[in-house]
Nucleic acid binder design. Structure first.
Lengths: 159, 159
DNA sequence: TAACATTGTTAGCCGATATTAACAGTATTG
DNA sequence: CAATACTGTTAATATCGGCTAACAATGTTA
């Protein structure tokens, strides 16, 4: 049930997948830049990933994900996006920190939990009325430390 | 802004702190059992933690947290509990998986995000009416894949 | 095509963290 | 108090994932 790849290898796969989107080919230097590691680290990671049949890579050549590699990369990226979305849209964390936290947490959260979290976010945000009032109140409270006037009166009324 | 201790060292400190609660003294074997590592691993971790002034430990003696060590352990444990609480009470994840996930995520989440998450859980659960209707609906939906009857009619009404 | 710039690899190293095997210290108890 | 059982440490080793320095391959351009 545990992850078959280490956080580090997951990062490499995710980076390759993201880089492969725009441009046609992926090269060592791009991966190195994206992950903030030196090129020899990339080379040795690629060796390992190739031996695990997650990428194709010939000496001095381009890097491509195999279908297995793509699957793993997609899984990681999905967890990343679910977490980031939750942090930004529900908790109201700023984009930058949300991405940072998601980058770390994506390797720690189980798939089951991630899917549940995804459902939760969808559930909260996809109501017919749009973002619910209580969430707006939370964000206001969270930012200003007090409740918006309407909320207080509403709460009083409901008591 | 980054964690000053590695995930591994955080785990040792947290374990020591938890073990110290019930019993009077903490010993190597207990830590070893709790974390599922062999005793020599504990010994070398303790050496490192002692050098960082996070624990007191004499050869063949008991283990105690310093005030610095206790502070770090408390921080980690707090993040753990915030995450576990969220996973269980909001997402409805079962206890066991929630604890497992929290154990991993506690090392990845930033303190800022953890505190925001804590506020969120408090906000949702501490309404005057108790657990809100929408959350009950989510849990029902999440478990059964459909919406409880009252929710649907309520949603229709509100459209 | 020769010189240069860029890119990628290799070799060797390091620190972190875990392991096993062997040993040393401590505690219990007959 | 001596034998035994338990607990903890040491030493040696492994794996992982990063690094630098040096070199090799590739690509560009004068």
């Amino acid at each position: 049930m545990d992850r078959e790849q280490s956080p580090s290898m997951e990062d490499y796969l995710e980076a390759i997948s993201v880089l492969a989107r725009g441009r046609k080919v992926v090269r060592v230097t791009q991966i190195s830049n994206m992950l903030g590691v030196k090129k020899p680290s990339v080379t040795s990671a690629l060796k390992k990933l190739r031996e695990a049949n997650l990428i194709e890579h010939e000496r001095y050549g381009y890097v491509e994900l195999t279908s297995d590699g793509q699957r793993v990369a997609d899984d990681v990226f999905r967890r990343h996006e679910i977490l980031r979305h939750f942090l930004v849209e529900i908790l109201g964390i700023d984009q930058e920190r949300a991405s940072e936290d998601a980058c770390k947490m994506e390797h720690a959260i189980s798939s089951v939990t991630a899917e549940k979290l995804s459902k939760f976010v969808d559930f909260v945000l996809s109501r017919p009325q749009g973002e619910p009032e209580w969430l707006k109140s939370f964000k206001h409270y969270s930012e200003h430390g007090n409740f918006p006037a309407e909320c207080v009166t509403k709460c009083e009324r409901e008591k």
